[in-house]
Computed example of a mutant assay.
Amino acid sequence: MNEIFTLKWRKNTLVLLDQTKIPREVAYVECKTVQDIYDAIQTMIVRGAPAIGVSAAYGMVIAANTYDGKSFSDKEKFMDYLRECAEYLKSSRPTAVNLMWAVDRIMDKVEEMQIASIEEIKAEMEKDAIAIHKEDENTNRTIGLNLLSLLKDGDTVLTHCNAGSLAASAYGTALAVFYMAQEKGMNIKAYADETRPRLQGANLTSFELAEHGVDVTLICDNMAAVVMSQGKIDAVIVGCDRVAANGDTANKIGTYSVSLLADHFQIPVYIAAPTTTIDMDCPDGSAIPIEERGADEVLCVNGGYIAPKEVKTYNPAFDVTPAEYITAIVTEKGIVYPPFKENLEKIMRK
């Protein structure tokens, strides 16, 4: 999979792997406008909290470089335009805090440069977006090494959704452990939940891990209890889209169910979380906004209806795993154990 990349920045164009087409086709989309970036995030051409954050940062650079005000020298109009674009991009998906963090980081830089020229602001925005991109890669590698310290050679890990290199700049978060294991000569196997309704585990995780030569077994979501009861799972490792201050964690719908099963079978649950995903302003899981998506994601599989078109659906994209079912939150700054509120505060001060 060396020839496949999730995102690349090329001369004011963000090139994104179209993840809606994996594994049937490897295709790329060029984003040259703010609207292109918004649509790519909203339609999940790009998905995964880290990748969304990096994409939004580049989206702000595109906004600056494509500003079409009548008077380009009018600084205040330029600044107002950037503020509008920032809020628009942040509205594309409400749950993943990396999106808000990355846009706000770019805008903080902009607001600090009130006396600079527009060209200087644009240059600094691009420099910071590239830095966010590189930092994400380094962060994910470190998270993978920290996760690996919790496992032993021969372990098998159950994961849900896709939190791998397809969801980030490189390595991913939850799946980084498999790539670090390969580097260290350890044999860590994977079980991947299919992850209904969008099947990211089937379409993306099984594809990605198989391409990297990882021993991966795909299962339907409703098989997790069976494989746990049979002693086939040594740990559960998942990514996340937001961690509240008390340790409650939002991740792809179905994660809560997996955590309950793991608790029953006394299997540790590890959350792979860049510190950019930790929201200390969010007191607990009840304050995390949960995105609801369209009915066709539930009603259709591969373009065909599997239920009557007129039937009602409920399609939350995420659920919240209570902190009590989480063994540890693994960040690039270290491993956080309960009590999460106290220890998350400590790690965020590092």
Rank of each mutant, 00 (worst) to 15 (best):
residue 283 P to F: 02
residue 258 V to W: 00
residue 205 T to V: 03
residue 30 E to L: 12
residue 96 A to M: 04
residue 220 C to P: 03
residue 126 E to Y: 04
residue 18 D to H: 11
residue 211 E to F: 04
residue 91 S to F: 07
residue 7 L to P: 00
residue 343 N to D: 10
residue 73 S to Y: 12
residue 176 A to S: 14
residue 57 A to P: 06
residue 155 D to H: 13
residue 214 V to Q: 09
residue 286 S to R: 11
residue 68 D to F: 04
residue 337 Y to A: 10
residue 82 L to G: 07
residue 232 K to S: 01
residue 10 R to E: 15
residue 142 T to I: 15
residue 339 P to F: 13
residue 94 P to C: 12
residue 147 L to I: 07
residue 304 G to V: 14
residue 273 A to C: 08
residue 248 D to T: 01
residue 82 L to N: 10
residue 72 F to T: 08
residue 2 N to I: 10
residue 168 A to D: 02
residue 44 M to Q: 09
residue 8 K to E: 14
residue 272 A to T: 02
residue 128 D to G: 00
residue 222 N to E: 04
residue 39 D to E: 15
residue 116 A to P: 00
residue 70 K to P: 03
residue 17 L to R: 04
residue 267 I to T: 06
residue 218 L to G: 06
residue 68 D to C: 08
residue 184 K to M: 07
residue 286 S to A: 13
residue 180 M to Q: 15
residue 332 E to R: 07
residue 188 I to Y: 03
residue 74 D to I: 06
residue 333 K to A: 07
residue 183 E to N: 14
residue 157 V to T: 03
residue 42 Q to K: 15
residue 330 V to H: 09
residue 114 Q to I: 09
residue 22 I to V: 14
residue 110 V to E: 12
residue 239 G to C: 00
residue 11 K to D: 15
residue 295 A to R: 11
residue 324 E to D: 14
residue 70 K to R: 10
residue 289 P to F: 11
residue 3 E to T: 07
residue 85 C to K: 12
residue 349 R to I: 02
residue 150 L to H: 08
residue 82 L to A: 07
residue 213 G to F: 04
residue 230 Q to P: 00
residue 220 C to W: 02
residue 65 N to H: 11
residue 211 E to K: 15
residue 42 Q to P: 00
residue 35 Q to H: 11
residue 68 D to A: 13
residue 305 Y to S: 13
residue 327 T to V: 05
residue 137 E to H: 02
residue 271 I to S: 04
residue 180 M to S: 11
residue 49 A to D: 03
residue 161 C to M: 02
residue 23 P to S: 01
residue 65 N to G: 00
residue 258 V to C: 01
residue 83 R to A: 12
residue 310 E to V: 11
residue 97 V to R: 10
residue 247 G to R: 05
residue 196 R to L: 11
residue 296 D to G: 01
residue 218 L to D: 05
residue 274 P to A: 10
residue 158 L to K: 02
residue 227 V to L: 07
residue 146 N to F: 08
